[in-house]
Design a protein around this nucleic acid. Structure first.
Lengths: 145, 145
DNA sequence: CACCGAGTGGGAAAAAGTGGTTGAAAGTGG
DNA sequence: CCACTTTCAACCACTTTTTCCCACTCGGTG
């Protein structure tokens, strides 16, 4: 399971080094990955098998389902199949790189089954704009968390 | 159960020695730990099993729950899976080390199932800013505490 | 006073990360 | 359809960081 956050950098060619900790786990699920996004604000990196599982589930949903259509339109627009290079880096597709402002420092975050890559400053900013309130803490406590 | 407070120091490499008392207990729950934070003001050190239990509880909550989302975003951002080294030290992830001002003297506090690590001066300061009032004492007394 | 365990610092080897070059392939124009 | 240009991916070489381990100090205890 992929957990936690690592700082990384995007070089001029748009390559991001996958932190060794994640890489080791990811290598087990093959060398192909699907890099995409739903909102264009960050990159999602799925091992191909995980992505295909998502596709299978989507296939079962009616093709007139609005949510499904939007999801497909976006993930298809931003997406690309990539492989990790010999140095453990993957290439972020240009369209996505631009819309998610992928340059300089980025956060590579483990989301258990896939990775999310964020512009470091942007993620921090989003987070700070949404502080945890006293109500939030109360709600969590009631859930026993 | 982890109880009480120990002074420790963070060295230049960002390592903190876990007090021997805590270490002995923690060793029983495996060698992997999840170091994270909810507010970025201190480090939380969970034995992996304890953390996974939290994850399980969270998984049952609707994914649209605001409190849950904020909690996950933060604990993921600040978090990292770590192991204790041969000298009983653990490494605080860089992002967290910075935001929680982890350098020099720190307090390592037992919170029964996990540890909290605070910048010593900062914790003392917070505490002094929030003195126990006569009303607080009265309230406690009425609770039979 | 000597020994033992806890804590601290630091050095060397290994791993992780970075940048650049080259060769192949794809794209473009004549 | 061929020749030339450009782009991209694969590979190589170097730098930096991290990890692992060794050795020392300090304080408490027999």
């Amino acid at each position: 399971m992929l957990r936690g956050n690592y700082l990384a950098t995007v070089d001029e060619k748009g390559r991001v080094k996958i932190p060794a900790d994640f890489l080791e786990q990811l290598r087990r699920s093959g060398k192909k990955f699907y890099v995409t996004s739903t909102q264009g604000d960050c990159a999602h990196i799925y091992p191909m098998k995980v992505w295909e599982e998502k596709e299978r589930k989507l296939a079962k949903v009616s093709s007139h389902n609005r949510a499904k259509q939007k999801f497909l339109a976006r993930t298809n627009y931003y997406g690309q199949v990539v492989e990790v290079d010999g140095q453990g880096r993957i290439l972020i597709p240009p369209v996505l790189r631009e819309s998610a402002e992928m340059k300089g420092e980025v956060d590579v975050q483990g989301k258990l089954t896939y990775l999310e890559v964020w512009n470091h400053a942007r993620f921090l900013d989003n987070m700070n704009r949404n502080p945890i309130t006293a109500e939030d803490e109360q709600a969590l406590e009631q859930l026993g968390i």
